[in-house]
């Protein structure tokens, strides 16, 4: 391996992994049992996994078509559209949470008439957690899938079209299988970002155990009183997310990449 690549690569590994080592070293391993069985920990973990998964599904449902529009259509102002939909990537998540209030809160532009018509208000519900996570995480999926679509060979689609397939059939039968690895990678990024989401969630969905308190929120609030317990909770979240990603990689991603 050439040194100009190897040395920075090793530095990158050290930079990314050492903070994790710090957590592992400082963790109070003798207390890990009692910390894990504390009331609310399992609840927060379950809520995190469920909401991050729902946010990823919602992002797939809406984000893959959006990526297709950005990569394949000839809509005017596509560059502007692309810049706009990636705004959540640069917006501080807390600001994103306030922005969600201004649109979907019970005083918000859309939320107001929903509240007046039905008495339902989105903030402080589990649905609000999914919405906040989707807002922050979907751009990761859109950017990945758009990249995959641009890299995919459009001649396969042209061939399908000359054989009589309409654009929807072409998308389903040709394009989607072609970019499946990109979609899978985007979905993983999206899921991971949703799982770690903090700012938009605590702002828009609030923080209540069992309803809206995800693991990152539980970790942050535990940090206020008991930093050691917060380290244990962070490691639990890390372990579960790494295990999930490794499992997916073995079962699904590799096959997707090979196909």
């Amino acid at each position: 391996m050439p040194a100009p690549l190897l040395v920075p690569a090793l530095l990158a590994v050290a930079f990314l992994v050492l903070p994790l080592v710090g957590l592992v070293v400082r963790a109070p391993w003798s207390e890990i049992g009692p910390q894990l069985t504390r009331p609310g920990v399992g609840e927060a973990l379950r809520l995190s996994l469920v909401s991050a998964t729902l946010a990823t599904l919602l992002s797939l449902l809406l984000g893959v078509p959006l990526a297709w529009v950005l990569a394949r259509s000839r809509v005017r102002g596509r560059s502007l559209l692309r810049a706009l939909v990636t705004v959540p990537l640069v917006l501080p998540p807390v600001v994103g949470g306030v922005a969600l209030f201004l649109v979907l809160g019970r005083q918000g532009i859309v939320g107001r008439w929903l509240f007046e018509a039905t008495g339902f208000s989105l903030p402080f519900t589990t649905a609000a957690v999914v919405v906040a996570e989707t807002f922050v995480a979907m751009p990761f999926l859109v950017v990945s899938v758009e990249g995959a679509l641009r890299a995919a060979d459009a001649r396969f689609e042209d061939a399908a079209a000359t054989l009589g397939a309409d654009r929807w059939t072409t998308f389903r039968r040709v394009t989607l299988p072609l970019v499946a690895p990109g979609v899978a990678a985007g979905a993983v990024l999206c899921w991971a970002r949703a799982l770690g989401e903090f700012g938009a969630t605590i702002t828009f969905a609030g923080n209540f155990p069992g309803t809206t308190q995800t693991m990152p929120l539980a970790v942050y609030l535990t940090l206020q009183r008991d930093p050691e317990a917060a380290i244990v909770l962070s490691l639990v979240l890390l372990a579960v997310s790494l295990a999930t990603l490794l499992l997916l990689r073995g079962r699904w991603l590799v096959r997707g990449a090979a196909g």
């Binding site: 306030v98 209030f101 201004l102 809160g105 019970r106 402080f124 609030g206 923080n207 809206t212 308190q213």
Partner: peptide, 20 residues
Amino acid sequence: QPDTQEDDVRAALTKVQLGE
């Protein structure tokens, strides 16, 4: 019976100011 337990007092106040 609160709907949310905020991480700091200004966050709680913001929700009042927004009317949420």
